[in-house]
Write a protein that binds this DNA or RNA. Structure first.
Lengths: 333, 333
DNA sequence: CCCGATCGTCGAAGCGCTTCGATAACTTAG
DNA sequence: CTAAGTTATCGAAGCGCTTCGACGATCGGG
C-alpha cells in the first residue's frame, strides 16, 4: 500500500503539505501542488478510507435502508436506489445498503461511525425506526412522510396532489363516475402513508367536484386485479373514469377490461399512477401521473448533503406531480 | 462518542484488555470479561469502524457491484442483492453498493481500503472490469462465468445443465419438436455468458436426443414475446414443447398462446426458466427450472468469506438446476 | 525602512483501535 | 524445590490521515 508518507517523500514535501495540497484547505503554491499531484499519479496513491474517517470524522458513505423484499414495487425501489447511488457519487459519496427490517443495522452503522448520514425508504406513519434514527448524531432523510417528522427530513411525491391531478383530468374530460384502484390492503394496513394520502386526496377532490367515486384496494396479482375491477364495476355501474395506482395490477386491469369488451378510452378512461417507463411499456401508452422515483432518490441525497455541508435544518419537501395525457383518456361520451 | 478508553476506565482495566475481551483473541478471565461487557452495555459503546479498519486492516464491508439499470431482471437482481446482503450479515459484514458501470468505483473502494472483498454481478465473457479486479489485493467473486476466470472465484447456475434438464423433461414426455424462447438479442450480444451457455446446452441436448429444435431470442416486451412466438411457430410448425427463458416475456407468451387458441399443456407444454415466485405467480403454476438467485448471492458471500478467513483458493462453482413439474407440461398426444 | 499581514510550509499531536512483547502470578513436571 | 510452562493482564507502538499552531519569507503601507 502506498501511503501519504510515500507521496510526501516522492514530492519532497511534508505530509501535511500533501494533505493540504489534496484537500485545498490551505493555500499551496502551484508548483508544489503539481509535484504532489505528479507523485500521487505515479505512485497510484489512494488515501486509506479508515484513516481518513478516523482523523476527519467523515466517512464519505451514506447508509440507505431499502425494502429488499421481493414485492410489488421492485422496479420503483430499484429506481429510488439508482437515484440515490448516482446522486451520492456526485457528492463523492458511496452507499451502504441496509435491509428494511434490520433495525439494529441503523444503530450499527451510525453509532459505529460507518456513515455520514442515513436515508430511509418506505416509511410508515408510526415507524418504529424513527426513535433510533433520532438518537444518532448523523442526519437522516426519510422517503415518505411519518406522522411526526420532527428532527428528520422528508421527501416524497405529493400524493394528495397526485390524486387531485388525476381526478381533475378525468373530470375536465366530463367523467362523473370515477374509481380508484389502489394499493393492496396490506400496504394500507402497514400505514405506509403514501397509500393513505392518495386515498385522502381522491376522496376530497371527488367530493369537492361532486362526482361519484369509489375506492377499491387491490392485491398485486392477476386475480387481485380482476377482483378489484369486479368490485368497482359492481359498486359503481356506468363508471367511465379509472385511476390505477398499482404497477403490478396495471397490465391485468387493462387486459381484463379488454376481455370484458370494455374499450379504452372509448368506454372507460384510465389514468395510471406509475413510473414513466411503466406507463410507456404497456400495450397502449398510458395517460399517467408519473412517480419520479429516481428524482426522489436524488433529492433525498441533496437534502442530506446540504444538512451535512451547510448545517441546513431538517425540512420536508413534497414534489409536485405531473400528468402526461397519452392514449388512455378521452372525453366522456 | 464513547471510546474504548471510556470502557476501560469504567471496567477498571486497560484498553488492550477491553479489546481482547471483545475480540476473544486472547484468554481473559470470566470476571474481567463480565465487567467489560457490563461497561460496554451501560455506556452503549460501539467501536469506531474507521479506527478498527485502520488498525486491523479489515473493514467488515463487502462491495457489491450490481446492474441498477431498470431492465429485464429487476426481480432477479433484487433477489441476488437480498441474498448477498442477508448472508453478509451472518458473517458480520455490511454491503457497499456500486453500480455496474462505475468501473472506477471498484478501484476506489478496493484501493481505498473501504472493503474486504468485491462481489460482481452480471459478468460478461470478456469483461473489462476483470483486469481492475485482479489488480486489487482484495479477493473477488463473480456471479457469472467469464472466458478467463483465473485468479477470481465464480458462482452461477449451471445453465447448460438447465437447458439439458428442461429438454430432457419435455423429451421424456414424448415431445419431438422443441423451441427455446430466450434472452433478448442485446443480452446475447453483450456476451453475458449465461444466455450463451443456455443456448449451447439447448443445442447440444436436442441434437443428442435427435429432436427437432429451434432457438429464438426474445425482446423483453409484449410485442417482443408475440414476435418470438410467431417466429417459432413459423420455423417449427407443430411444435409441442416450449422452453421460455425470459421472465418478462413469460406472461405475454402464455397470453398469446391462449389468444391463438393453443392450450397449455394440451397442445403445447411449457417449461419456464425463472425464479420460483415468478413460476408460481402466473395464471397457471408453471413447470419450471428455478433460478435460485438468493441462493447464488448467498453462496457468493460464503465463497468470499472462506477466501478471507481461511485463505481458500479461487474456485468456480456451478449450481445444479432443479426442475419442478407443475401444471404446464403433459405427455405429447 | 520597519511593522504587521499574508502566504506557503512544516512538525507534531491526535483520531480510536489492534496487536506485539513483557510481566507477574500461578501451575505442573521432574 | 526449581525450571519451564500457562494464564491473565498491561503498556506502548503503530495503523494513515487531518488539522492546529508555529515559523520564516515576502509584501505593502505609512
Amino acid at each position: 500500500m502506498t501511503t501519504i508518507d510515500d507521496v510526501a517523500r516522492a514530492a519532497g514535501v511534508s505530509v501535511s503539505t500533501v494533505s493540504y495540497a489534496l484537500s485545498g484547505k490551505r493555500p499551496i503554491s502551484a508548483s508544489t501542488r503539481q509535484r504532489v499531484e505528479r507523485a500521487v499519479r505515479e505512485l497510484g496513491y489512494r488515501p486509506h478510507a479508515g484513516a481518513r474517517a478516523l482523523a476527519s470524522q467523515r466517512t464519505s458513505v451514506l447508509a440507505l435502508m431499502a425494502p429488499l423484499r421481493v414485492d410489488v414495487n421492485v422496479g420503483v425501489i430499484m429506481q429510488f436506489v439508482t437515484g440515490v447511488v448516482t446522486r451520492a457519487r456526485d457528492f463523492e459519496h458511496d452507499v451502504l445498503l441496509l435491509t428494511q427490517d434490520d433495525h439494529a443495522g441503523i444503530e450499527r452503522v451510525a453509532a459505529g461511525s460507518m456513515v455520514d448520514a442515513v436515508i430511509m425508504m418506505d416509511v410508515e406513519a408510526e415507524d418504529p425506526r424513527l426513535p433510533i434514527l433520532r438518537r444518532q448524531r448523523q442526519p437522516a432523510v426519510l422517503i415518505g412522510l411519518p406522522r411526526d417528522a420532527s428532527g428528520l427530513s422528508c421527501v416524497d411525491l405529493d400524493f394528495e396532489a397526485v390524486a387531485r391531478t388525476a381526478v381533475d383530468h378525468l373530470a375536465d374530460l366530463g367523467h362523473r363516475r370515477i374509481a380508484l384502484i389502489g394499493s393492496p390492503q396490506a400496504v394500507l394496513d402497514r400505514h405506509t402513508t403514501y397509500a393513505q394520502r392518495m386515498v385522502r386526496g381522491f376522496r376530497s377532490e371527488t367530493e369537492r367536484l361532486g362526482v361519484e367515486a369509489v375506492f377499491e384496494p387491490c392485491e398485486s396479482s392477476v386475480a387481485g386485479a380482476v377482483d378489484a375491477l369486479d368490485r368497482v364495476l359492481a359498486r359503481l355501474p356506468g363508471v367511465t373514469g379509472l385511476v390505477v395506482h398499482n404497477e403490478v395490477a396495471l397490465p391485468a386491469v387493462l387486459a381484463t377490461l379488454r376481455e370484458r369488451g370494455i374499450e379504452v378510452p372509448r368506454d372507460v378512461s384510465v389514468v395510471a399512477v406509475c413510473p414513466e417507463d411503466v406507463a410507456l411499456g404497456q400495450v397502449q401508452a398510458l395517460t399517467a401521473v408519473s412517480i419520479p422515483a429516481t428524482r426522489i432518490g436524488a433529492v433525498a441525497v441533496e437534502m442530506v448533503m446540504h444538512r451535512l455541508d451547510h448545517g441546513q435544518e431538517a425540512e420536508t419537501r413534497l414534489l409536485a406531480p405531473e400528468l402526461t395525457a397519452r392514449t388512455t383518456t378521452a372525453p366522456a361520451s
